[in-house]
């Protein structure tokens, strides 16, 4: 059997991490969790996931954005192209953008987040699995 698909879950809430791990492992994914964006960046290098599930609104409200920006701009191929699905309390269809106050010249204020999908929080297990499948087959 081929190696299991690896998913890195980034969320500061251990309950969410545990629940997602259960859901994902029951669908035969290999899961690692990270509680902060530093841990997540370490995890990207050591675990080399096929997909990242990212909670965008971590405690200071900006960490998730910085994680996306750092991974996309400062990491070598193929790490910088790992698909990201964002978990967000903000409705997915509002098309999340970078906040203006975070603009440091590297990206434009209001630029769309370079991610592959959004999942509304709270997470519906079946919707989550469907979204992951969709993104992985793209």
């Amino acid at each position: 059997m081929a190696e299991a698909t690896k998913i890195l879950v980034v969320d500061d809430d251990p309950d969410i991490c545990e629940s997602l791990r259960m859901v994902l492992e029951s669908a035969d994914y290999e899961v690692e969790v990270a509680g902060s964006s530093e841990e997540a960046l370490e995890g990207v290098e050591s675990f080399r996931p096929d997909l990242i599930l990212l909670d965008i609104m971590m405690p200071d409200g900006t960490e998730g954005f910085h994680f996306v920006w750092k991974l996309r701009n400062e990491y070598p191929e193929p790490l910088n192209a790992i698909p990201i699905v964002v978990l967000t309390a903000i409705h997915a269809t509002t098309q999340m953008r970078f906040y203006p106050e975070e603009s440091d010249g590297t990206y434009e204020a209001g630029e769309f987040l370079p991610v592959q999908g959004f999942i509304d929080k709270p997470v519906e297990p079946s919707a989550l699995l469907a979204k992951i499948k969709e993104v992985l087959t793209q």
């Binding site: 629940s19 997602l20 405690p59 309390a89 929080k121």
Partner: peptide
Amino acid sequence: HELRSPLAAAVTLIKV
């Protein structure tokens, strides 16, 4: 965020 997080976590836990 602080108010929603525990609620969202509870929903996810129950669903799972």
